[in-house]
Amino acid sequence: MAPCPSVKNILVLDAEGKRVAVKYYADDWPSASSKMAFEKSLFVKTQKTSARAEADVVMFDGYIVVYKFIQDLHFFVTGGDEENELILASVLQGFSDAVGVLLRNNVDKRTALENLDLIFLCLDEVVDGGIVLETDGNAIAEKVSGHGLEGAGSFTEQTISQALATAREHFARSLLK
């Protein structure tokens, strides 16, 4: 039987290898501890590499993992050892793009945790039960936020207002210190 292209898991870890948000689609890791062990050794193995400009790839434990680091967040997409690396890379790209759009390019651990609901919804919209659902970053972000279905204008507007808000906040904080 021909296997359908499939994703085993998507992981978002922080700079210490701790979970921010993860989603497992396959039963390859049945227990919570086996999942943790996989994440830990994957993190250690990739930690020293620099996967910032371009997604990198590693063969690990019989799985192919493509990964990308943005600020203090580490994004991983895992597939079987016969999986097409480029499909996994497209999933990673779509997911990280969508997170970027939803967090208005402030992709770091703090912002991600503050908007954790969006990250969870994002994981839900990229892959369903291992099957790739959508890999266009903007389309995923639109599905998550419910925007864009009405019109595309609101996004840019919000980005500007958000930028102003952030700036104001930073300013206020620096005064308080």
């Binding site: 371009e54 997604a55 790839v57 097409n84 690396e85 480029l86 890379a89």
Partner: peptide
Amino acid sequence: SPKPVLRYAAVR
């Protein structure tokens, strides 16, 4: 290719 993923796929 400049993309590591593509190079990896090819050489594998």
